[in-house]
Computed example of a mutant assay.
Amino acid sequence: MQHFPYFMDNYCPLECACYGRVVQCSDKGVDRVPYGIPYNSRYVLLMNNHIDRIQLDLLSEYRTMEFLALTNNRLTDGAIEGAFEGVPALKRLYLDTNQLRSVPADLPMSLEELRLDNNRVELMSDAAWSHCSGLLILSMSNNSLGNGSTSLPRAVLSPLCKLQTLNLDHNQLTSVPLGLPLSIKELYLKGNWIEEFRNGAFNGRSELVVLDLSKNRLTNKGLLRDSLLNASHLESLNLEGNRLKQIPKHLPVSLKTLNLEDNLVTSVKKRAFGALKSLEHLGLARNKIFKVAVGAFRTLPVLHQLDLGHNALRQVPRQLPVSLHSVALTHNRIQAVPRDAFCWGNATLSQSGLVRVQLQNNLIDLSDIDTQAFRCLRGFQVVHFY
């Protein structure tokens, strides 16, 4: 009887396609890991199948496997218990879109990226992370973390001392987790139920560069004075779609991008952005802004883009920064363009840096407009009334 070539490196299972040390078994309708995947495989792709369990000790012989993708299968907690602990070189493990309720407890020490998005995970403990302290990327969006009444246990992720990217979008967290690893550079918390951001999220100087808190329930009261005190490297802050009634105070001076769109802000005071000298992009669209103090934006010396569309402004804000490249003022109630809106200070002596001014869907009567208000612009092609 001919021996089945299970151990031959050049064998490829009938259900799969093999390209060197890449084994492609995705979209094959299989309900088990195919028999005969070569032991020297580095990348094993099993996405979009019906796999509901991994045979015990099946993966322990795969000493060189670096990437295992099991996205969109039918795996449960019991079905993967003990499956990954004997895979010494595994760096990337994709278990997203399955039926898991907890974080696997036997993750290999070699792991650098773990994706558990679109599962049913409700809880996690620091014991789950103790084996993989070298994890760099953890993505757990679209789960049930927090259950709408709690947040994660304090410092539950502290074993992940090298973590750089954490995605907890679309869970049920009510507050920003406390005691997060200081190494995190990107933190995504979009679409949770967060009402407060307490100090203590980072117990020490954080490396955070990108923070997304959009589509939550934050109020000005919930965004505390020292919430971002330790985030001295933060460059991008997204607060879109919350319940803020005022421009938040005490924001990191390192910010380059600030998104406050789709909130409840009604006015912009003169010193609202006073300390944000590095801000380049500012989004204030879809608020209820009807009043902007004279020179409220002039304290932003490198601001390039400003979006004030879909508000209740009756005139173009005065003394806009001369650094602006584009300003959006569409869908307001603007009737007047003051002479010192675009052209004031240095801009009166030379051409403005503006290349796009959007004034569509307002109440401007072109027959009444003061052309001197645009005297420093490069030409009327910069201004869009319709």
Results as ranks from 00 to 15, higher is better:
residue 376 C to Y: 00
residue 256 K to G: 14
residue 96 D to I: 00
residue 7 F to Q: 11
residue 88 P to L: 01
residue 85 E to I: 12
residue 363 L to H: 01
residue 286 R to P: 10
residue 241 G to L: 07
residue 195 E to C: 10
residue 10 N to K: 08
residue 212 D to G: 04
residue 326 S to H: 09
residue 165 T to C: 11
residue 204 G to T: 06
residue 366 L to A: 04
residue 287 N to C: 02
residue 75 L to R: 00
residue 171 N to C: 01
residue 32 R to F: 14
residue 317 P to F: 09
residue 210 V to W: 12
residue 139 S to Q: 12
residue 150 T to H: 08
residue 290 F to M: 10
residue 386 Y to L: 12
residue 320 L to F: 10
residue 349 L to R: 14
residue 225 R to V: 13
residue 326 S to C: 12
residue 358 Q to I: 09
residue 140 M to P: 07
residue 23 V to E: 01
residue 4 F to M: 13
residue 253 V to P: 00
residue 8 M to R: 13
residue 198 R to G: 08
residue 143 N to I: 05
residue 47 M to T: 10
residue 238 N to Y: 12
residue 244 L to M: 10
residue 217 R to S: 11
residue 111 L to E: 05
residue 354 L to V: 11
residue 274 G to E: 12
residue 381 Q to G: 01
residue 128 A to D: 08
residue 369 I to R: 04
residue 4 F to H: 12
residue 115 R to K: 12
residue 87 V to M: 10
residue 282 L to A: 01
residue 109 M to V: 00
residue 366 L to H: 04
residue 111 L to W: 08
residue 330 T to E: 14
residue 273 F to A: 06
residue 2 Q to D: 15
residue 304 H to Y: 14
residue 212 D to L: 03
residue 79 A to V: 00
residue 381 Q to F: 00
residue 29 G to H: 00
residue 260 L to G: 01
residue 237 L to E: 03
residue 184 I to N: 08
residue 122 E to Y: 04
residue 39 Y to I: 05
residue 84 F to I: 03
residue 182 L to M: 03
residue 191 G to Q: 09
residue 93 L to E: 06
residue 303 L to V: 07
residue 157 L to P: 10
residue 360 Q to V: 13
residue 165 T to S: 13
residue 321 P to W: 00
residue 180 L to E: 05
residue 158 S to P: 06
residue 141 S to D: 11
residue 273 F to Q: 09
residue 222 G to A: 01
residue 116 L to I: 04
residue 17 A to K: 15
residue 225 R to Q: 15
residue 372 Q to N: 15
residue 73 N to P: 06
residue 127 A to E: 11
residue 144 S to H: 08
residue 83 A to T: 05
residue 198 R to V: 06
residue 199 N to C: 14
residue 49 N to M: 03
residue 306 L to Y: 05
residue 115 R to G: 13
residue 79 A to S: 12
residue 128 A to Q: 11
residue 316 V to F: 03
residue 13 P to E: 06
residue 323 S to T: 01
residue 87 V to H: 07
residue 193 W to N: 15
residue 194 I to M: 10
residue 188 Y to S: 10
residue 70 L to Y: 07
residue 146 G to V: 03
residue 305 Q to W: 13
residue 363 L to Y: 13
residue 130 S to P: 04
residue 379 G to K: 07
residue 215 K to A: 13
residue 372 Q to G: 15
residue 4 F to L: 10
residue 222 G to R: 06
residue 312 A to V: 00
residue 212 D to M: 03
residue 237 L to H: 02
residue 312 A to Q: 15
residue 138 L to A: 03
residue 44 V to A: 03
residue 360 Q to H: 02
residue 258 L to G: 05
